[in-house]
Design a protein around this nucleic acid. Sequence first.
DNA 1: ACCGCAGTTCAAGTGAGCTTGAGTTCTTGG
DNA 2: CCAAGAACTCAAGCTCACTTGAACTGCGGT
Lengths: 157, 157
Amino acid sequence: MAEENVPSKDHWLSIGEIAHRSGVAASALRFYEDQGLIDSRRTAGNQRQYQRSTLRRIAFVQAAQRVGLALAEIREALGSLPEDRTPTRSDWSRLSKGWRTRLDERITELERLRDDLDGCIGCGCLSLQRCNLYNKSDRLAERGPGARILNVGIPGE
Amino acid sequence: MAEENVPSKDHWLSIGEIAHRSGVAASALRFYEDQGLIDSRRTAGNQRQYQRSTLRRIAFVQAAQRVGLALAEIREALGSLPEDRTPTRSDWSRLSKGWRTRLDERITELERLRDDLDGCIGCGCLSLQRCNLYNKSDRLAERGPGARILNVGIPGE
DNA sequence: ACCGCAGTTCAAGTGAGCTTGAGTTCTTGG
DNA sequence: CCAAGAACTCAAGCTCACTTGAACTGCGGT
């Protein structure tokens, strides 16, 4: 099996194929390209062609979104990855450790909120003076992509 | 100290005071009113006046936002609470249990993501076939190199 | 009376992440 | 060769939770 069927060479995918395989709408793919997250070459007739590695890049983007990164941050992260080859273990390790930290923070915050909530279920307070939920006005913005992630469903299929 | 400033009776607050005390911008308060989250009465000169309980309502809104509810959902939740009195323990219990469930779900999701990530840090994979983080929507990628090639002979690369 | 800040309304803008629509061009099967 | 369908561009629209701006009016102090 030393001789595989050498597929990687010049196997380009159309936007429709990429869209179908990745589950990301073609419009989103064009948008991603606009945003510098992925790239493509064009056919003589100006249609986009993608390398297979683009699927991996897109999967990366989706994973990063689930972690809660904004596209701008993802672009930055991608900037530190190789264009065409599979990232090395250390590439990945560096990035994923940052993600891990993000996730830990978000989880910790939500757990704290949950605990406060439990306290409130017990005390039934809703008192402005005493309630943990109320008084922690440390406005930790959970407001960005966080809540939206749940809404970003699969388009139409 | 018994006769500090005679409190509860008809002590109305201006939008500026509410904004200052709650930390919510006046524009946001008007917006909340628009959205039916809070209400106010008006002075002869058409300026808003709020009851003190409005501060509690606003705090409630903020807590609910931290839990991840959208304003529309918060409005609904508020609809089931009394307008003027402090909510009872059972009012609160009912709502907060729903919140608790939401939080639990979100926490669980993030934990799963974190665990997948940990697996990936270990394997350094970023492999479309094997990675838990990636494999969500890649079902169709299984159809390998047999796929049709849209080849418009562009040389090189 | 007058200043100036606080408040009012309504419309439009913001930004993130896309989608939708219009009008045009490419590619492919029959 | 032609019709159908896939892709192209560019602009505009959408959701959410607000903010900003313009043009006024109200209110308190001197």
